[in-house]
Design a protein around this nucleic acid. Structure first.
Length: 292
DNA sequence: GCGACAG
DNA sequence: ATCTTGTCGC
């Protein structure tokens, strides 16, 4: 008749601390060391011909395979999960800017995570699966290998200045841009709160002005932008460069790939696509069990 | 020491 | 990340 209070409280906190306790601290130290070493080798400037003049492909020309003089193929990479399990769907979607943003390549796969999510080390959980998809794309359809990749997570906007987007950009040697929906805890608590307050005020001040950029910097270096991409959008996104791209070019592409939604289209499609893939799997599974 | 912490 | 209904507005 009378349920006890404990039935309404899920032991999430307890699980969280257990997970953290089960992680080998020396492993984390090695990860941190690797991030600090690799970040020195990142190229936070334009390296590709198409970046120099901000040239975008506008017409279909099948002749110029491996044309690197124009931005044409842009990719979105993302991973969706099953409940609280380690089963996930990793997907890559490539879009053709010269053909009205048509999806010219997609590849989805069910994978099993073998590392936990540790704040600051998201790459060690997700990046291997993302890089695997990129390798496969390069092998099967090199023509569609993207000029630039959008990653669900931060790039430079990271405690060690080496977020997931940097990680993927570094190991794939491809231009990457990181986009997150929540401001990551890059600085100390109070400094982070100041950033949040300042951003809140600037958004308020800007009113309905649709494109608002607010710099997020630490130690005199630009780490990322808080960016309100759509008019009337309440929540901004947080953008940062990963590898082989400049801030200028990053913002240029960002405006191109944002359509009507807050989330840049490549990432949004990758998110929707991987979720749909999992949903269909569940549907098929249920149909089979229902028929039995 | 505690708090906070992209996906 | 994931679980979720309706609801308000263009």
């Amino acid at each position: 008749m009378h349920k006890s209070l404990s039935e309404f409280i899920s032991p999430i906190k307890e699980n969280k601390s257990n997970i953290m306790d089960s992680i080998d601290p020396t492993l984390i130290e090695n990860w941190r060391k690797e991030q600090n070493e690799n970040r020195e080798k990142l190229k936070h400037y334009d390296t590709e011909p198409w970046q120099k003049h901000h040239r975008m492909a506008t017409e279909l020309r099948e002749s110029d395979i491996s044309n690197n003089n124009e931005l044409r193929y842009v990719a979105g990479l993302d991973i969706s999960f099953v409940k609280d399990k380690d089963t996930a769907c990793v997907g890559i979607f490539v879009f053709d800017l010269a053909d009205n943003f048509k999806c010219v390549y997609k590849d989805l796969k069910i994978v099993t995570m073998n590392q936990p999510y540790v704040p600051g080390f998201l790459a060690y959980r997700e990046a291997p699966f993302l890089l695997e998809r990129l390798d496969r794309l390069k092998r099967l359809k090199p023509k569609y290998y993207p000029h630039c990749i959008f990653i669900d997570g931060n790039g430079l906007l990271h405690g060690n200045k080496f977020g997931l987007a940097c990680h993927v950009g570094y190991y794939s040697d491809t231009p990457t841009i990181g986009v997150s929906k929540q401001l990551f805890q890059v600085f100390g608590l109070e400094k982070n709160q100041k950033h949040k307050d300042r951003i809140k005020n600037e958004l308020k001040k800007a009113g309905d002005f649709f494109e608002l950029r607010s710099k997020i910097e630490g130690d005199d270096t630009l780490l990322g932008y808080c960016y309100r991409s759509t008019d009337l959008a309440t929540n901004p996104i947080y953008v940062s460069i990963g590898n082989k791209i400049s801030w200028d070019t990053c913002l240029w592409i960002l405006r191109i790939v944002i359509k009507n939604c807050r989330i840049p289209e490549p990432i949004r499609q990758a998110d929707l696509g991987t979720r749909k893939f999992l949903a269909n799997l569940n549907k098929n599974k249920n149909n089979e069990t229902d028929d039995l």
